[in-house]
Design a binder for these strands. Structure first.
Lengths: 231, 231
DNA sequence: TGTACATCAGTGAACGCGCGTTCACTGATGTAC
DNA sequence: TGTACATCAGTGAACGCGCGTTCACTGATGTAC
């Protein structure tokens, strides 16, 4: 047959899928120790009991393996955020999503660092990472849209410079046409605040101030919901 | 003499100080290309026309060189923030400081990534970096203190959980005893928001939404000043 | 001021290590007739 | 169902490279008397 139906995958197909997964799992394990810059194909192969050249049957280069890890991380975080978006009350939904993002980051700090830390030098993320990268933002936007539709979101009354109005309205067109620019600006503030907090916590900047920081986190999320206009 | 007076430093002393500076300058140049994980003593020496073992007269190990770069970066950013803190009006001061921090980060993105990006794997920052690391935060706290003293800062009326109250009051004791816990919590939110925005801009997360982002930045800082209670 | 000695900077070779990637190959698995 | 051929996974050797750190050394600079 031309395209193998998933129902009748050959043993070869299954072995390939499984080994691909094992390679990524081992690579993720190494991220924790070495960081992204130190990820080594040879070390992954060694740990898997293979010869290093065998990995080239699965990933054409080290960068492709990195890309796979990045895409997987964005997708896993996005899925966690989407799964946490439940309930009726917008504030309850928003808080749940923010907590889920933080929990995911704390559970896999090195994968978080891979996607929200400093860029890996010499590595250029391909276009395929853009869509998984926006899933968390879209969940938050979704909460705001529902609240806006229900008429419970605070109206846009703050003034905004002309260029920013243009930028946010352009952005609105592609992700939430009914939301006014200033509301999108509020969402952007909350979005950067969310990840700013998580990064500071994970990267050790909060040590000595509010550490452990989950009380601060919950408080800050409440204040951000006020700021966004969720009621 | 036992301790050389700085007025009569020997040629050797001056040469040493100069070479130490040149080594760090070259190392900073390499950060831009290779990132922190790829910083190589051999490459630095090569570029300086020295033999790699000669660097050990200046830095006992690669990690010590990294530490020097980190400390310098925190100090340079701190100095930029302090220099930008001028004028009478608290909002003017705050905005100036935030803009200066962003400008510094944009000018030396790799040094910014070194201190606010993902931690370098296997590298543990020594205690000496803590005090330079807090300079920016202290400048912002200073603005809030002056505003509080002048009676122009919005009073603390928001409710806060008991553990967070305890944490922020403990923090207040060491950096701003007169400020109530909730005011410190507001400052922490603004502080994480500031660096969250800058990191997102520098690390490429804003590409496709509000990029270039200085209009958004100014807007967000204004909203944060409202949030902090600066008038 | 002149001399003897101590300190320090820089050299060059070496140790032992790890890396990504290519290539010709063997042997197993899958496919078409 | 059986056979001939094509596809693919994994091997092992090799290429060419770079790294941090140590060590015995030479020669220049600084210091004490």
């Amino acid at each position: 047959m031309l395209f193998g139906m998933s129902a009748s995958r050959t043993a070869r197909d299954r072995a390939r899928a499984e080994l691909t997964r094992e390679i990524k799992d081992e690579a993720r394990r190494q991220l924790a120790v070495q960081g992204a810059a130190g990820l080594s194909l040879r070390a992954v192969a060694r740990e898997l009991g293979m010869v290093s050249s065998a990995l080239y049957r699965y990933f054409p280069s080290r960068d492709d393996l990195l890309t796979a890890l990045i895409t997987d991380a964005y997708d896993a975080l996005g899925a966690a955020a989407e799964a946490a978006d439940k309930g009726e009350d917008p504030r309850e939904r928003w808080l749940g999503v923010c907590r889920a993002v933080r929990a995911w980051a704390i559970e896999q700090p090195h994968e978080y660092a891979l996607i929200y830390g400093s860029p890996v030098p010499g590595y250029q993320a391909p276009r395929d990472t853009i869509s998984p990268a926006s899933r968390v933002a879209l969940v938050l936007v979704g909460v705001a849209r529902d609240s806006w539709a229900a008429g419970t979101l605070a109206p846009a009354d703050e003034g905004m410079s002309e260029p920013l109005t243009a930028q946010t309205e352009l952005l609105a067109e592609s992700i939430a046409p009914e939301l006014p620019g200033p509301v999108l600006a509020r969402l952007l503030v909350a979005w950067t605040q969310l990840f700013g907090m998580i990064s500071f916590e994970l990267f050790g900047q909060l040590v000595g101030s509010v550490d452990p920081s989950h009380h601060f986190f919950d408080h800050a999320v409440e204040r951000m919901m006020d700021f966004v206009g969720l009621r």
